[in-house]
Structure formats: C-alpha cells, structure tokens
Amino acid sequence: MSSSDAAKPRKEISPLFKMVLELGPLVVFFFANARGEWLAARFPVLTDLGGPIFIATGLFMAATAIALTVSWLLTRTLPMMPLISGVVVFIFGALTLYLQNDTFIKVKPTIVNALFGAILLGGLLFGKSLLGYVFHAAFKLDDAGWRKLTIRWGLFFLFLAVLNEVIWRNFSTDFWVAFKVWGTMPITILFTLSQMPLIMKHGTETSEDGAEKP
C-alpha cells in the first residue's frame, strides 16, 4: 500500500443508511418474534432454535453480523459502540439459544447501556470526555461542552439500563420486544434532539489553519 493510499480519508456512509444498519437488526428481531410460528412453518430448520423469542434471537444475531460486515466493507472501520453492542449480542444470544433461557437476551440491553454509562462517567473521573472520541467527526465542541454532554449521555445510558430492567421484569416478552424497538428508539431520538441547545452553545468552528475558534 502506498503512502498516498494510507493518507486517504475513511469512506463515510450516509446518515440514512447508517440508521438502516443500526435499526435493521432490531426490526428483524421484532418481526421474527411477532411472526415466529409463521417463519418456523415456512423454514422448518428454525424450529431447532425453539419458540418465537429464540428464533428472533438467532435472526437478530445473524442480522447484527450482516450489519457489522456491511459497515466494515463500506468504511473499512467499525464504530466502537455498535461493535461492543454486537459482541454482547453474540455472547448473550448464544447463551440464550444454548440454555434455552430468554433471560440472557433480555438483560443484554441492561449490560450494554450500563457498560456505556459506566465508561463515559468513569472516564470523567480521569479527566477524559470519552464521548468526544465517538462524536468528534460530527460535532466540534469546547472542553466544557464535551464534559457536559458526556455526563448527560452517561446518565441517559444508565437510565436506559434501569428502564430495560423494569420493562422485562414486569411485562410480557412480546411487550418487551415491542418496547425495545418502538419505545427505546424514540426515547433515544428525543433525548438526542434535546441536546442540540447544548451543542449549539458550546460549538466551535475550525479556521483554515486548523485552529479552533469560538
């Protein structure tokens, strides 16, 4: 590989297609759980996985693997958060199928969100606003802005972890699956939009020589 090739910027995918890659596995999970018996009747091999929630788990794992693969092929990189979430999906999905216990896939969102929240808030204890490493390409904020945004996202992830525990422990599996897709995502989108005033307040511009200016 020549030095000019190495210097080429990473390819970016459109925000819409990126959303499809992130939401696609969740939609597959919801559909497979809702139509698990229908899928098993047409694809008998799926009956080896178990009932609808187990069929949904297996297809969720497959869809997650496809989404990560497509992202890698298009950009030659894997975003850290989807990668960590994917690893947890594979581990807890495998435990769900092997032990035929849907508790593992139900606590997966709790583990992922609690992990993200702990990493973000823990980083601040060492003076690191780790959210800046994730969203630096999308936003240019001053140090105070990244610190505030990191605190808010860290607490939000912990809130999602608690919310998932409340939902799966007190409601049916079908309700939990539906809420995971049609409840959690809208809540996350609304939270993201609510952070725009902070982002605009602490946003910085970059001058032609690369220096940040207020």
Rank of each mutant, 00 (worst) to 15 (best):
S3T: 12
A7R: 14
E12F: 05
E12M: 09
L16P: 07
L21G: 06
L21M: 01
V27M: 15
A32M: 09
A34M: 12
R35L: 06
A41P: 03
P44E: 00
V45G: 05
V45L: 13
L46D: 07
T47G: 15
T47M: 14
T47N: 15
P52V: 07
I53R: 03
L59F: 05
F60E: 01
M61C: 01
A62Q: 07
A62L: 13
T64E: 01
T69E: 05
S71W: 03
W72H: 01
T75L: 07
R76Q: 13
T77E: 15
P79A: 03
L83Y: 03
I84G: 05
I84W: 04
I84L: 10
S85P: 09
G86V: 03
I91S: 02
L95W: 02
T96S: 09
Y98S: 12
Y98W: 13
Q100P: 07
Q100K: 12
F104L: 06
K106C: 02
K108N: 00
T110G: 03
I111W: 06
A114D: 11
L115C: 09
F116W: 11
F116N: 10
G122H: 06
L124E: 08
F126P: 09
G127V: 14
S129P: 04
G132R: 08
Y133E: 10
Y133Q: 03
V134P: 09
F135Y: 10
F135W: 10
A137Q: 15
D142V: 00
G145I: 00
W146R: 08
R147D: 06
K148E: 15
K148C: 07
T150W: 13
R152F: 00
R152G: 06
G154H: 09
F156E: 05
F159T: 07
V162C: 08
V166K: 02
I167C: 10
I167S: 01
I167R: 02
F171K: 06
S172V: 07
S172I: 13
S172R: 04
T173R: 04
F175H: 12
W176Y: 05
F179T: 04
K180S: 00
V181M: 03
G183K: 04
P186A: 02
P186F: 01
P186H: 05
T188D: 00
T188I: 12
I189C: 08
I189Q: 09
L193G: 03
L193D: 09
S194N: 02
L198F: 02
L198R: 02
G203T: 10
E205H: 08
T206Q: 15
G210T: 12
K213R: 15
K213V: 15
